[in-house]
Write a protein that binds this DNA or RNA. Structure first.
Lengths: 360, 360
DNA sequence: GCCATATCTTTGATCGTTATCATATAACAC
DNA sequence: GTGTTATATGATAACGATCAAAGATATGGC
């Protein structure tokens, strides 16, 4: 590997001059020298040493990305169909902006903190971080942070939340289900922190609009971890007879449960309806195609990166808590229960209008 | 951020002594000094600066991972269900071995080379790299390389291929199809370099065993890129009437085509059978469940990382070209065509034994 | 007291790059 | 010729960690 010093020696000039040419500070260097240096740069295909650069400057040009959340059958979060799309968008945007990406998926927050400090990363994108972990990171790491799918406390500074209108998403989905006659709705969440909590609020509000009250026993938490997965699905299978629809907080779980249940003789949506969240490719491929809430993960990833880089470059950030729009996507996984009649104006079915009566 | 020098000054000792304690060279340091230093290390939660480390030592503790291949609807390769599982396994193994991962998904090989040189990464894992690009990388980058799903030329040194028994996989799958009476088999590949080529050889050999000859018109290449996707699927839909089965080189494409086709009235497997490759979660979730070739991506990722680290640490590598075992997984996406009878001994159907007659 | 050995500690150079400051040269005005 | 400015270039010291080699101190033998 050729260095600046090598080239300076070859041309009989100082390293400063070579460095200036590399950085385009050509106003300080004579035209003749610029040409000599540029010729050599091309000839040897000079590549700067970024370790040396980040040592003298305060910035490393590295953006750290941490993922935490749902795991697949290999205990692997990157394989999650939603996270992987988001991650891909983040990676390509980071690269095209001239930065480098380092990924951490560890559950060990101390390890994450050590990693970001040891490389002095310029900024951090945290996916699905929990509140306590976020506070821990903030206490040690002072550079800008962008959150995605996380609970965003107002009392901490120098970060931005790039979120969705989660509340509205769950609200509209719940309304859709009520509209189609569903009253026994199970709400399936990964945990009760972060976005799932916000979605649950939307769910409650929609129920309230129909004069119904959310019952905590209808809030089903999917236990994470590979070992518990089978047990969790079996338990949900047992509980499913109490409901007409499973409203899931991710397409991933909806699809997984749909295949598990249909293997056990449950007809979908005749016996049990399903809805998801995210609108990943999967939800279009499975049959019945999944009714879900669409977001644009590619756009979201790009926005997260560009916001972070703005913060790194100390530009003004207009919004502290961005809420990207969502869209209800109706497909075939929700049955219309005519016994309850129709509750929506645009629905073509005519029926009774016993609005607001719980069925239990 | 506290540095070694800060701590040395605080204790009135030299940086060398502090450095020795950090590296566990306690034989050279008095017990008393060790205790003093360790107390300070804990108190300030010292984290070394890796840029400075990689500057003095030849190693950066970074492993580069490059992905190239199938893209999803967002032109995103990380979202590919197979690559993402592999990537997740690679990430967690790299991390648990004390290394750091940097990802590159760019199609621009010059950019990739600049990136790995600028960080002086200790080793490289290349997924789905094409031959010419590999040669280019090799000409500039001299550290160890591990290939996954790539064509592995014998005349280049200092790399290991962590592959599958791709030929056997395609061979067994083709035999299975022939066994079930299929004669009009389309072979769908992403490209004709790398693993798909090797799989095609297995396919040809299986056909030959039945006295059949592979026809190049039955080799269908799926055009990559988002823009061409729809056109490519439509073209395949048009061609599908010539075949009884689509033998795909990935579950991803099989699942995608199955949903596209069934939306257009094709009954699967009655009208057209499908097979995949990889056995990703998707293939268990879709209906009909996909007959495919199983590999263990988590194991493969771990093996790739551990092999690379062995090479970095200059240990002996036993094998140059590892071929991990595969397994045929028969599910519901392949119809048995009784008109042709059975060709296998273990098949319970009795029928004619016109072994080796092509049907066209 | 002298030397040898073992144990502990420091000095100073190094990695590749960048920033600050100083210096050299040239051009021009008076 | 002197002073002023502009332009071009160089010397040097960081950045934080590591390492080889040299120096310092303690211990023991005779």
């Amino acid at each position: 590997m050729i260095t600046i010093k090598d080239m300076a020696d070859m041309l009989g000039i100082s390293t400063t001059t070579v460095s200036n040419v590399i950085h385009g500070k050509t106003s300080e260097v004579s035209q003749k020298t610029v040409e000599k240096v540029e010729k050599l740069l091309k000839e040897y295909d000079y590549v700067p040493n970024n370790s040396a650069r980040s040592l003298t400057q305060k910035c490393s040009k590295i953006i750290g990305v941490s993922l935490k959340g749902r795991k697949d059958q290999y205990d692997n979060i990157i394989a999650d169909p939603f996270f992987s799309v988001l991650l891909g968008a983040i990676e390509s945007e980071i690269r095209s902006r001239g930065y480098f990406m380092m990924i951490y998926t560890s559950d060990d927050i101390s390890e994450l903190i050590r990693n970001i400090l040891t490389w002095n990363v310029d900024g951090l994108i945290l996916l699905g971080i929990l509140h306590d972990d976020f506070v821990k990171i903030k206490s040690r790491y002072k550079n800008p942070i962008v959150l995605i799918d996380s609970y965003a406390p107002r009392d901490i500074m120098n970060y931005v939340n790039v979120g969705l209108d989660d509340e509205k998403g769950a609200y509209e989905m719940t309304l859709h289900l009520l509209d189609r006659g569903h009253r026994r709705i199970a709400f399936l969440a990964d945990n009760m922190e972060g976005v799932d909590y916000i979605r649950y609020i939307g769910h409650q509000k929609a129920l309230a609009k129909y004069g119904l009250k959310a019952d905590s026993k209808d809030l089903l938490i999917i236990r994470p971890g590979t070992a518990e997965r089978e047990a969790s699905m079996e338990e949900l299978f047992y509980l499913s007879r109490n409901y007409t629809v499973f409203m899931c907080c991710s397409d991933y779980w909806a699809a997984l449960l749909m295949s598990y249940f249909s293997d056990r003789g449950v007809r979908i949506p005749e016996d049990l309806s399903f809805t998801g969240f995210d609108d990943v490719l999967l939800s279009r491929i499975i049959r019945p195609a999944l009714t879900t809430v669409r977001q644009d993960p590619a756009k979201r990833g790009r926005l997260a990166v560009n916001t972070l880089i703005k913060m790194i470059q100390e530009e003004e950030i207009p919004e502290w808590d961005v809420k990207l729009p969502i869209e209800l996507v109706v497909r075939d996984s929700v049955k219309t229960i005519s016994a309850y009649g129709s509750y929506s104006q645009e629905n073509d079915m005519s029926g009774s209008c016993n609005d607001g009566n719980a069925d239990e």
